[in-house]
Simulated scan of single mutants.
Amino acid sequence: MTVPEASATVAVELERLRGTVSTGFAEVKGSLSVLVERSDRNERDLQQLRQDTEKDLGDLRTDVEALKRNRWPLAAIGALTGIAGSVAGLLALFIR
């Protein structure tokens, strides 16, 4: 092999290597683009989920407050029932 043939062979191999490296970088760049797009989509989905959750929690808080306002005063009803029972017992005792 003479020097010009050797340098031509080296040049061909370097060009082949450059093509292989370029192809590898293109594949990596494409994969990174896909990952960035997925990350952006996941971030948007997470932000939307947070907004929906906050809205639902706000609605739930409103419903709970409405239930608290409209609940029956069980302690007062229990006390009135006890007093009414005592009065009925006393009336029954004195009427005899």
Rank of each mutant, 00 (worst) to 15 (best):
M1D: 08
M1Y: 11
M1R: 13
T2G: 15
V3G: 00
V3W: 03
V3S: 06
V3F: 04
P4N: 12
P4C: 10
E5L: 11
E5S: 08
A6R: 15
A6G: 00
S7E: 06
A8S: 11
A8Y: 01
A8W: 03
T9F: 11
V10G: 04
A11P: 02
V12W: 03
V12N: 04
E13Q: 12
E13M: 10
L14H: 02
E15N: 12
R16A: 14
L17Y: 05
L17W: 08
L17R: 14
R18Y: 03
R18V: 09
R18P: 05
G19D: 09
T20M: 07
V21Y: 06
S22Y: 10
T23F: 00
T23V: 06
G24W: 02
G24F: 04
G24H: 02
A26D: 12
E27A: 13
K29Q: 03
G30C: 06
G30W: 01
G30D: 15
G30F: 02
S31K: 07
L32T: 05
S33T: 07
S33I: 02
S33N: 09
V34D: 02
E37D: 09
E37Q: 00
R38F: 00
R38T: 00
S39V: 05
S39R: 04
S39A: 13
D40G: 04
D40A: 15
R41E: 15
R41H: 08
N42T: 14
N42F: 10
N42G: 08
E43F: 03
E43W: 04
R44G: 05
R44M: 11
R44H: 09
R44D: 11
D45C: 03
L46Y: 09
Q48L: 06
Q48S: 01
Q51F: 10
D52S: 12
D52Q: 14
D52Y: 06
T53K: 12
E54C: 15
K55M: 00
K55R: 07
D56L: 15
L57Q: 13
G58Q: 12
D59L: 15
L60Y: 05
L60F: 08
L60G: 05
D63A: 14
D63Y: 01
D63V: 06
D63R: 09
D63S: 11
V64F: 07
E65Y: 06
A66Y: 03
K68G: 02
R69T: 07
R69Q: 15
R69I: 12
N70W: 03
N70Q: 13
W72V: 14
W72H: 07
W72S: 11
P73H: 06
L74F: 06
L74N: 09
A75S: 15
A76Q: 05
A76R: 00
G78V: 13
G78E: 10
A79E: 09
A79T: 13
L80G: 12
L80T: 13
T81I: 07
T81S: 07
G82Y: 01
G82W: 00
G82E: 06
I83T: 14
I83K: 05
I83N: 10
A84I: 02
A84R: 01
G85H: 01
G85F: 04
S86V: 14
S86R: 04
V87H: 02
V87W: 03
L90S: 13
L90E: 12
L91I: 15
L91E: 13
L91D: 15
A92W: 15
A92V: 11
L93T: 08
F94Q: 13
I95H: 11
I95L: 12
